[in-house]
Design a protein around this nucleic acid. Sequence first.
DNA 1: CTGAAAGCGCTTACAG
DNA 2: CTGAAAGCGCTTACAG
Lengths: 327, 327
Amino acid sequence: MRATIKDVAKLAGVSPSTVTRVIQNSPAISQKTKDHVRKAMQELNYHPNLNARSLVSSYTQVIGLVLPDDSDIFYQNPFFPTALRGISQVAADYNYAIQISTGKDEEQRLEAISQMVYGKRVDGLIFLYSKPDDPLVQLAIQHNFPFLILGKASSPFVSLVDNDNIQAGFEATTYFINKGFQNIAFVAGNKELVVSQDRYQGYKNALKAHNIPLDENKVKFTSGFLLEDSAYKITRKLIKQKPDAIVTTDTSVAEGIVQYLTEIGVKLPIISFDSVKPKLAIDAYVDVHAIKLGRVAFNTLHQIINDSKENKQVCYRRVIPHTITEL
Amino acid sequence: MRATIKDVAKLAGVSPSTVTRVIQNSPAISQKTKDHVRKAMQELNYHPNLNARSLVSSYTQVIGLVLPDDSDIFYQNPFFPTALRGISQVAADYNYAIQISTGKDEEQRLEAISQMVYGKRVDGLIFLYSKPDDPLVQLAIQHNFPFLILGKASSPFVSLVDNDNIQAGFEATTYFINKGFQNIAFVAGNKELVVSQDRYQGYKNALKAHNIPLDENKVKFTSGFLLEDSAYKITRKLIKQKPDAIVTTDTSVAEGIVQYLTEIGVKLPIISFDSVKPKLAIDAYVDVHAIKLGRVAFNTLHQIINDSKENKQVCYRRVIPHTITEL
DNA sequence: CTGAAAGCGCTTACAG
DNA sequence: CTGAAAGCGCTTACAG
């Protein structure tokens, strides 16, 4: 059988509480005792039962990652694995484990997250998506459970880590304006998503700042599950407006556009958004630095968890700078 | 405060053990009592403390997903999110949660997995990679801990779920042979990986079966972190061998090849392997059906966990069929 | 069909 | 600097 804290205590000739204190590296314990106990732990290959620890101490050293529905386009995008990398890098340093939670629909996801929260399986949550009035977020708010959104939240009292997508849209558009283009089209992903709206706002702001009139015929939003397919079809119409450059919010969208343009033998300057260097022949991309987003997200959640232990309620809002890279 | 099992028992006028039995839907309990207790649970919004449950019952309803090093090319590939989808779909049906585990190097990963296993945080493990003599797999074997490898294992006594990569390599090559090509090149990812070796074996088998001599100058393996970059460079040399078609084992590799070929204005038929429809203009791809792999992986692990409760030791080896799709 | 008791493996005051 | 006791919230035999 696995060794318990009692076995270690016996072998080291101390009480179980002393063993606990050694594990916690309590300054109250003498160096000599610590050495003894540690030797005993080694000898018995002792590892604490984390369930027992969590039961009594009511912290788990686990955080939950809340993903959107299983069917979501989310999984097509390198954003998720990249942000996950950032989160897990910092989590490993703090010795935190990561539990992920998704489901086929909202009901199943709500059930899963309830179990995590009520069942005391995690100390905090990171939402890897952002949508208005999400019931899962509501649950966290109601129970005063530590959480943070990786994205833009509608409520002003929610902690979040995000890019400044309005500014990024502005800069992406300005990139082309500065190169002398005047008929810049804009093609975004799902219109409902806050990121699409924000980047569109940035696009409009940039045109305005340079006194270029907005032509809504040059603005398109994709729909459906496969972004490329939708973008491909949209381009057919878009091209009639004779744009001289295209700002797009997603590499998948850019892929659809490029595919159509290639087929009809047209070449247009394109800028896109991505979390990794696009494998596509486009001119530039806005790097949202998903690894950094993930790293800061974990750090911030960690902060929030500690705050809540002290009954502090702080709302953190962190912006991760983007960069524009020419290809 | 959150309601405990005692609160429910009191409200329902029964003992805590009866509440437990109702939760377990034990046939020993009368319908009337069940109704009472369930009503009380509803009223108090009762959710069991899972740490307490795991402590005493020593099962967790959590499985661990073991990922390769944080720096690994693994994260560039859609295989991971796709397989994860499959795993989490079935996990949700069984009401299992998923914990993921990675780290910056093997030491950190071993530490993380030790905590999961010794700390009794998970009931079983799925390894999402496969390499010879992996110390993490050793740990699981030594402790008789339920696990399974999503990939090919070197030991014959390890459960696994995988494609038949030799057969797939054979078919991919035959696809071109049947179209009349005779000078088929082969470009694979990292030579150390078992999948690369297996697909190469399939390539050789196909040539042999059609009496086409193997020309090792037409066989290349990439190296380094960015597969496309490596493939790009390799193509420069490869092209001197005047291949008339190329079998490649990875879409990233295919991307590098296509990029080079496009630049020099050459078009060659290419077939690749992928878990999602490639966004690249190639002729066909072998779909490894990563979702299915994930689904079967969870189901099998679930089986293994149940076997181990009954002290059964069964070694499962499941093959997931691939398909070739023309684009 | 149901309850009382013991215990899972820890940690946390309390006491010295 | 250290120990004895109590308890976290469940479940599992045992008994009836």
